[in-house]
Design a protein around this nucleic acid. Structure first.
Lengths: 219, 219
DNA sequence: GTCTATACTTGGATAGAC
DNA sequence: GTCTATCCAAGTATAGAC
């Protein structure tokens, strides 16, 4: 924590592009995707980035710190993307459509795999656990927000146990990614989202009464 | 696969108890739980078992093979337990009660963590992927069976997309375990199961019509 | 079957030249 | 800031004595 041996972080102000630090982060993301937590060694990451292995320690002090920076990177990237799309969500059908779309993207890009690998990897490095947990929290918050948006036109929103549902949503998302990754294909998850899509009209109907009895719509 | 250098597996017939082979499997399970896939080295496992490191290679040829044997062990143990309990399941409420109970057991025992670690670890050892996938299949089969049992009194059972639902169930189970393990507590999952329990009576009501119109009940 | 000893490899991390 | 060189710890795996 108070690791004074680590040099002051290089400033992003000067030039900012083709930064070695940033290249290492991107490389760490790639290696986590392709070789998992286990394969994410300083040497493997540095090779991927095309730089010297010693630079990992110069810029991040430890491999674990670089891995956390990589998790921050994909986490921020994904949440930015999700939040943009969330503006379009007003009912259950559009919520499910969004979930389906972003899940496809996440599986294909491998971004969720980074999350899953870091969570699983936390077992072998206890000090990682707390840090990874911190970075999962925003995903839960986003899930809560998305669910609230999807059911905002329904009186149900106050009855829904948002906390439990969003916890389940994050867990399901993680589990689906792991199974997809294992099988090498995402047909299992795709079928599930198709079934959810069929369910959407039913949920929309539940929302209609709230709409018809709410003539002003200030909230 | 055709690894002829591996000695013929020691017979279980002679004495069968306090077998080193079995001790290594149990130790591998323990280390996978406590230190994850990453920490599951031949040395760590042998130390846990109180035997020499070289015996890992004598009995299993490679560390990966031992890890797969460990996965077989918990997989068989858990499915045996689940299947026994499944006899009690006849409606949605009892299905949810069973799921709640076994999930608590699985989290506390760490058995699901073994599964999760092996899946995540497959990324760093491609040849593991297919072998792990083989061992997940029975879990999906069990989930299908459990869901069919839970909804057997309902006409809904033929409408339910069993494949998609059981895939989701396994994924959710896995994801919940990972999040629980990360947080160090299972309150998130516990709250979810409480909500599911509240939902059970509703699902039971859906089943009633099927019961009342079915006066014979041969199936 | 089990142990000791050892060969070889990979990985984390640091020192010091440039 | 980056590179070379190096140290040391840990890991896989094998040979050979018992």
């Amino acid at each position: 924590m108070a690791r004074s041996g680590v040099p002051s972080r290089p400033r992003a102000s000067t030039s900012a592009r083709h930064n070695t630090r940033q290249a290492l982060i991107e490389a760490a993301v790639e290696v986590l995707k392709s070789r998992g937590f286990n394969g994410a060694s300083a040497r493997a990451i540095a090779t991927e980035a095309g730089v010297n292995q010693a630079l990992v320690f110069y810029h991040f002090g430890t491999v674990a710190a670089l891995l956390l920076a990589a998790l921050d990177e994909v986490s921020a990237r994904r949440l930015r993307r999700y939040t943009t799309e969330l503006a379009e969500v007003t009912d259950p059908a559009s919520l499910i459509a969004l979930a389906t779309k972003v899940f496809r993207e996440d599986i294909d890009s491998g971004d969720i795999a980074v999350l899953a690998e870091m969570i699983a990897g936390s077992s072998s490095a206890p000090e990682l656990g707390a840090e990874v947990a911190k970075r999962i929290a925003p995903w839960k918050d986003f899930a809560s927000l998305a669910i609230e948006s999807g059911f905002s036109t329904s009186g149900l929103v106050s009855l829904l146990p948002i906390g439990a549902v969003s916890h389940a949503a994050v867990a399901l998302y993680l589990g689906l990614e792991m199974l997809s990754h294992l099988d090498g294909d995402r047909t299992g998850a795709t079928l599930l989202f198709e079934q959810l899509a069929r369910l959407a009209p039913v949920l929309d109907v539940i929302c209609v009464p709230a709409k018809t009895t709410d003539k002003e719509g200030t909230q």
